[in-house]
Write a protein that binds this DNA or RNA. Sequence first.
DNA 1: ATGGCGGATCTTATCCGA
Length: 267
Amino acid sequence: MSISVATWNINSVRLRLPMVQEFLANHQPDVLCLQEIKCQNDQFPAKAFAESGYQYHAVNGQKSYHGVAIVSRLPLLESDTREFCKMGDARHVSAIVEAPFGKTRIHNFYIPAGGDEANIEINPKFKHKMDFLSELQDWFDEDDFDNEQIIVGDFNIAPHENDVWSHKQLLKVVSHTPLETDTLNALQARRNWVDVVRKHIPHEERLYSWWSYRSKDWNASNKGRRLDHIWATPDIAGHSSQTVVLRDARGWGLKPSDHVPIISHFG
DNA sequence: ATGGCGGATCTTATCCGA
């Protein structure tokens, strides 16, 4: 008995619905967490996912931007959303699944990108990102935050040197600045979160989950960043057996997402 | 040149992402 959880920033779920369905058919994760669905709740293609065998959904949509969803072939219990920074953004949804090792809450996050300038004084988007991380840390510190959890999503931070194509050249680029990586590392230490991607693919190996659309040839230049993550509390991470990053997905179809799916197996 | 692209919507222009 095992359970598999996938995360994928899909950059419009309506545009790339056939691609997601093909992914589900080929890889059959039990749970798929999507970010940047870019639609409202009533526009979410729930029926299409149900016909693909994924009949359980927890959706936190928003018009045009952001938006997150969990689709599952296992029942989703007690789904919930949380608002951060009083922005009205749809950047979080969670639900409980019955895993072989017990009931487990899965959180799906879309952390703000942060704009261009890594300076909270002059860049409101960067301030939003840092404030979001601060609120997240406060939440993790609360006593009622369960100990058995998985968190996934587009964190928009590449924390380690081998999570970017050039550590040196990206030190001042939002997503890899020391302020962001230190903050994310502190956040990770808060609940002893285990990075289950790096548990199976060690830091010595370069690993990316995002490649810019603006690159002429993403595959040849390979200037990516590891922005997408799957973390688990220690007990659950102890059950994790494998993680796959589907690099090839960056080249799927004529219009791929700029992020690729990551799948972790537990149990 | 990673960011000379690609989403959605305010659509033939604009805002946003990273």
